[in-house]
Design a protein around this nucleic acid. Structure first.
Lengths: 156, 156
DNA sequence: CGTGAAATGCGGAGTTA
DNA sequence: TAACTCCGCATTTCACG
């Protein structure tokens, strides 16, 4: 499926506000609501959206510390990786994880209440996994989603 | 503002699908649409949501490679940091960035079309910033948003 | 553009302190 | 009574074919 400028505009607008109504989108694109509706349906059906996520105000919910945790496993094998990912799904506090090539096997974005919770997360929860080789954490001062892509390659 | 189980449920549901309608939320919570609407309005007004983001199917848009790039700056000073963040906003391909404490100052989640685009991004775009000390990249095999938080501390 | 459905706001009922 | 949270209803607005 080929995209044009209007399609790209829909993608961009929803990246920044996934709860925009069809009406609101139509106003932004300067087209009729029905036309916009069709386009949005087409984009959705063609699987251009992976997910629509509300990101929460973590501080307000008591998660005062966010950290990025680098994890190296003893064996970077399929089975170990699978069971580690499975473990990640059971742990509380994981906002997002990256599975990586290279020295660091996993990068975890984690939200915790306070330093004690962090210590417990790392020493009790995470280290519990027996193939952990190494863990290092960095406090996140700030993080932001940018969505600043160039779409030149999909435009007709 | 105190939250109860219903509020938490709204937060969780929208984390997983930010385009859920009020009606759909109401059905899930098993309360009247009007009630649900009031709660959602209250949560929104009280700033519990930071953003609603559509995450796109990057592969489908021609971004075949995602990388995590560690950046160390020569000087980790306010002015340098500010202008680097400003620069990040102008670069194409940055999905998300983290500003960190520790050895690594910035972690960038970047989406590119192919190895050549990546090379150009790093050598031409990023290295253009004069306070770059060090850059290292890791290919992202897989990354996922989990939203697996425990809300025990905000529940009444 | 039309129809059916949903969003939205309000008054009132039930509950608790 | 005051402060809630809920619901049903009425109106406006929107989704969707």
């Amino acid at each position: 499926m080929r995209l044009d400028q209007k399609d790209i505009q829909i993608l961009k607008l929803l990246q920044n506000n996934a709860r925009l109504s069809n009406k609101e989108l139509a106003v932004e694109l300067d087209i009729a609501p029905s036309t916009c509706h069709e386009r949005l349906k087409k984009l959705t059906k063609s699987n251009f959206f992976k997910a629509f996520n509300a990101s929460l105000n973590l501080e307000k919910l008591g998660f005062n510390i966010e950290v990025l945790i680098r994890v190296r496993l003893k064996k970077h094998e399929r089975e170990v990786v699978n069971s580690f990912i499975q473990k990640l799904h059971t742990l509380k506090g994981i906002v997002r994880f990256y599975h990586l090539a290279g020295e660091t096997n996993f990068m975890l974005h984690v939200a915790v209440e306070n330093p004690n919770t962090l210590r417990s997360f790392i020493l009790d929860e995470l280290s519990d996994f027996k193939y952990i080789d190494n863990i290092e954490s960095s406090i996140i001062y700030h993080n932001k989603c940018l969505h600043n892509l160039s779409y030149t390659n999909v435009i007709e």
